[in-house]
Amino acid sequence: MNYLLYFDAGLGAMIAQAAIAALAGFVLFYKTVIAVIKGWLGMRKEKKNGSFDSSYEKDPENN
């Protein structure tokens, strides 16, 4: 049997989009799971506060 497969541009774009979406979904799921596990184990790093709001809250002259 001789099968000829034809992929048009639309089908190729759809396959590429599905592959990219699957990869992005895996990355986001992986980051979330790792963050939850690190939270349970107490290995989470403290976030640096980079906003200016916290600077004004600590300054006694602005109260």
Rank of each mutant, 00 (worst) to 15 (best):
K47G: 03
N62E: 12
F26C: 05
S55N: 00
L5R: 02
W40T: 09
V36F: 14
K58I: 01
D59N: 15
Y3W: 09
I34F: 04
P60A: 14
S54H: 13
A18D: 12
G42F: 06
G42H: 06
I37P: 00
A16F: 09
A18P: 00
M1F: 02
Y3S: 12
E46Y: 09
K47R: 10
Y6E: 04
Y3D: 09
I37H: 01
M43I: 08
Y56P: 01
D8S: 13
A13E: 13
Y56H: 08
V33F: 04
K45P: 02
F52P: 00
G42A: 03
M1Y: 02
Y3R: 09
G10L: 06
G12N: 05
K58H: 12
K38P: 01
S55A: 13
K31P: 00
G25V: 06
Y56R: 14
A13K: 10
D59E: 13
S51F: 15
A35H: 04
A16I: 05
M1K: 05
L41V: 06
N49Y: 10
A19K: 09
I34Q: 12
D59S: 11
P60E: 13
I20C: 04
A13S: 07
L11M: 08
G10V: 09
A22K: 12
K38I: 00
K38R: 13
L28Q: 07
A22Q: 02
E57R: 01
G25C: 03
G12I: 10
G39W: 14
A18V: 12
L5S: 07
M14Q: 13
T32H: 04
L5Y: 05
I20H: 03
Y6M: 06
L28D: 10
R44N: 13
L41N: 01
L41W: 01
L11Y: 11
V36Q: 08
A18F: 03
E61H: 13
K48R: 11
A22L: 09
D59K: 01
A16Q: 13
S51E: 12
N63D: 13
M43S: 07
G42C: 11
I34D: 07
D8W: 07
E61A: 15
S51N: 14
K48W: 02
A19R: 05
A16K: 11
Y3T: 14
N63H: 11
N2G: 05
M14S: 11
K47M: 07
V33D: 03
N49V: 14
Y3V: 15
V33H: 02
V27R: 10
T32Y: 03
A35N: 07
Y30E: 05
A18R: 05
K45N: 12
W40C: 13
Y3C: 06
L5D: 06
S51D: 15
D8R: 08
F29L: 08
D59H: 01
E61F: 12
S55M: 13
E46K: 12
S54A: 14
V27C: 00
W40F: 14
K45M: 12
A16G: 04
T32R: 08
F7P: 00
S55K: 14
M43C: 04
A13F: 07
N49R: 14
K31I: 11
K58F: 03
